[in-house]
Amino acid sequence: MMRMSKIVRTCADLMYPFVVIFGWYVIMHGHLTPGGGFQGGAVVATGAALVIVAYSYQEITSMLKKAVLMVQESTGLLLFIGAGLGGMVLGFPFFFNWLANSGSLFGMSVPYGPNPGELNTAGFLPLMNIAVGIEVWGGLTLVILYLLSGLEKGEA
């Protein structure tokens, strides 16, 4: 039952929403700015690691359930494959970008050359970024939790 002092715990509580929001910003703007699903998911998992460092293992396992994280990781991978399979329903090949330049969701087209950027572009790439972000978030948090659960009693 080892936990950090009240100052560290309060700072972790304060910083956690900002870290998560920044991670989701990196995920959502993956097709416009540097970043993407893997990087943003790693940032969000860093927020979870911050909370894990500040609290003890017993408190962490009541906040972050391993089963929920496992479901989250599987959901991310299934969403990723589903976004690739979505085009096959409409008659396109597997992994064809069936939303790009279509005019619907994320369907605005972009001319060649530098431009300020528009969020509603890029076809199914934002969907894939979100899927991979969910997967990496769950996966890395799960790895940290399992490595923490491998410690002896009294060390965590």
Partner: peptide, 9 residues
């Protein structure tokens, strides 16, 4: 520069 066209200089 990095291959990103958003405000590319």
């Amino acid at each position: 520069i990095a291959p990103i066209f958003t405000n590319a200089p």
